[in-house]
Design a protein around this nucleic acid. Structure first.
Lengths: 348, 348
DNA sequence: CTGAAAGCGCTTACAG
DNA sequence: CTGAAAGCGCTTACAG
């Protein structure tokens, strides 16, 4: 059987309290005893049970990560970043693929509660905000890539989507484009809204119009992007540039252009968002607004840890849990220019 | 404070044993009491603590998944499949990105042990097999996409890589190719070895030669594939078809061909392996041998669960844990034909 | 059908 | 510097 703290204590001729203290580097233990106990733990290949220690009210050293789809390259990268930083800081992460379905989100949050995770990172859309609002569970939470809902006691880490949208517009305007269109994921998602807002804002400043029917909303898949782009490219006054709110949609646009025999970037420029591995792999490779995924994930984890510390310093059985002031952090994006954008071909 | 089993018991005027029984649907409880207790649990929003119940020797309902890189599309898909099937069956999964580094693998396995996961799924290369061999931890384990090491008490679920290799060869031969080359990940990885073996086997049967210098080994990244392909394409008797052992390498090959101004598929055919989202997104889209990822993941989870059951039926404190007979399951691959392959252009 | 009691492997005041 | 004891929230024989 696996060695327990009792085995170690007996072997060392001390109490389990003493062993516990050396495990946690707490209290004062004579150097002599300490090293002896450590030697014994090594010899017996002792690993303290996280389960037992969690039951005593300590941490589980486990985080929950809710994302719509792990196989979506963007979220896969987010997951990697979170997992990596978590591991560095001693935390494991449980992944939860929600498919953006409310019932799944509820299930997962309930499971995470039962498993007493120390914190939750939410990168998924939450339609019914009440799930989060009545945060009766009081598990530290941070939203990643999405805005927290009004009243939610959660931190937020996002990319500066608005600035990203502005940069995309700036790039296209700089190349000389004037007839622009947008393919976006649902505008109910805060990040999409912000990207569009920034984009439009910059156009406005230049007095360039973005007609309503030049802004298309759809789901996030390649197929959706293709369909919308196809329609946009069939417009009488065909746009010379497309801003797609994520790489998947941009790929759809590339495909639609190919079908219609429209050369990229000569006849159509495409700017994308996210800069996942996909952007570098298409032909031509996509100019894309890069999100600082690495930093996004790391920051989310760090905000959570910060919360834990705040709480630890509070009386154990406090009636009301004091929350750290919810923070909101927006990280700079970066425009990566590749071959899908160029000056518009002068007509005539 | 969160409700505990004591709160429920008190409220219902019964013992905690009774409550425990209704939670676990064990023993006989009068219908009346049962519904009353359930009502109270609902009202108090009671969620049993997985931690506490795990400490009593039950399951943690958590699985560990070791993969080299979550952001690699293939492994992202594996992770999704595992997570999905796990969730259906009531298990959460902790992801561990090992980067194929032995020290990380050891760390992770140690953490998973401390957290008492019910099972481990290993999709990562394990250089030093001793980590697995002295499976002192005796956690049910299944290898996914990799062969178990001799003596390891682990199940195995793989794609039928050899047949996949054969199919790739068959396709190319059928199109009329005779000068073939291979870009593969390290042949120390069992799956790469098998793919190559199947490929070569089929060529042999047709009396077609595959010269040694036409088989290149490298890492798994796009950049690596590009470099190897570049060399192959510079060979005096340039091959008319390339078999790349994964999508990333194939993308590298596409890029190398483009650089060298070699048209695909007219002047060079490329067959890939894995059929991740990447294969459908390149230009031209890649003909690729699809692994049944969904099934792969689901099967891995199911093998694990099967193990749990076997064990449960054993006396609690048995000195030696009886293992279920290690199983090995190979799943059929499927060749997906896209636009990167065609008959070789007749020369002259 | 129901409950009292021991035990899972730890941590944490509290005494000494 | 060290230890006895209570407690974390459950489950499981065992008795009734």
């Amino acid at each position: 059987m696996k060695a327990t703290i009792y085995d170690i204590a007996k072997e060392a001729g001390v109490s389990i309290a003493t062993v516990s203290k050396v495990i946690n580097a707490k209290g004062k233990i004579s150097q002599e005893k300490r090293s002896e106990i450590i030697a014994i733990m090594d010899r017996l290949n002792y690993q303290p049970s996280v389960i037992a220690s969690a039951l005593t009210g300590k941490h589980t050293y486990t985080l929950g990560l809710l994302i719509p789809d792990i196989a979506n390259p963007f979220f896969a990268e987010v997951a990697r970043a979170v997992e990596q930083r978590g591991h560095e800081l001693g935390y494991s992460v449980i992944i939860c693929g929600t498919d953006n379905r409310n019932e799944r989100i509820e299930q997962y949050i309930s499971v995470l509660r039962q498993k007493q995770v120390d914190g939750i990172i939410i990168g998924t859309g939450v339609g019914d905000t009440s799930i989060l609002r009545d945060n009766a569970w009081s598990i530290p939470t941070v939203m990643i890539g999405r805005e927290a809902y009004a009243g939610a006691k959660a931190h937020t880490v996002v990319s500066d989507d608005r600035q990203g949208g502005r940069d995309a517009a700036e790039h296209l305007l700089g190349l000389g484009h004037r007839r622009l269109a947008v393919v976006s994921e649902s505008l109910e998602i805060s990040s999409s809204r912000e990207r569009l807002r920034g984009f439009r804002e910059r156009l406005d400043e230049q007095g360039i119009e973005l007609p309503l029917d030049h802004v298309r909303q759809c789901k996030y898949r390649v197929e959706d992007g293709r369909r919308q782009a196809r329609e946009l490219l069939a417009l009488p006054e065909r746009p010379t540039a497309l801003f797609c709110c994520n790489d998947l949609l941009a790929i759809g646009a590339l495909q639609a252009a190919k079908e219609a025999d429209i050369a990229i970037p000569q006849e159509l420029s495409v700017v994308s968002f996210d800069n996942t591995i996909l952007a570098s792999v298409t032909d031509p490779p996509l100019t894309s607004v890069a999100q600082p995924v690495e930093k996004l994930g790391a920051t989310a984890v760090e905000l959570l840890l910060h919360d834990f510390r705040e709480r630890q310093s509070q009386p154990r059985r406090a009636q009301t849990v004091q929350w750290a002031q919810p923070q909101r952090i927006a990280l700079r994006t970066e425009l990566i220019v590749r071959a899908s954008t160029a000056a518009p071909r002068s007509r005539g």
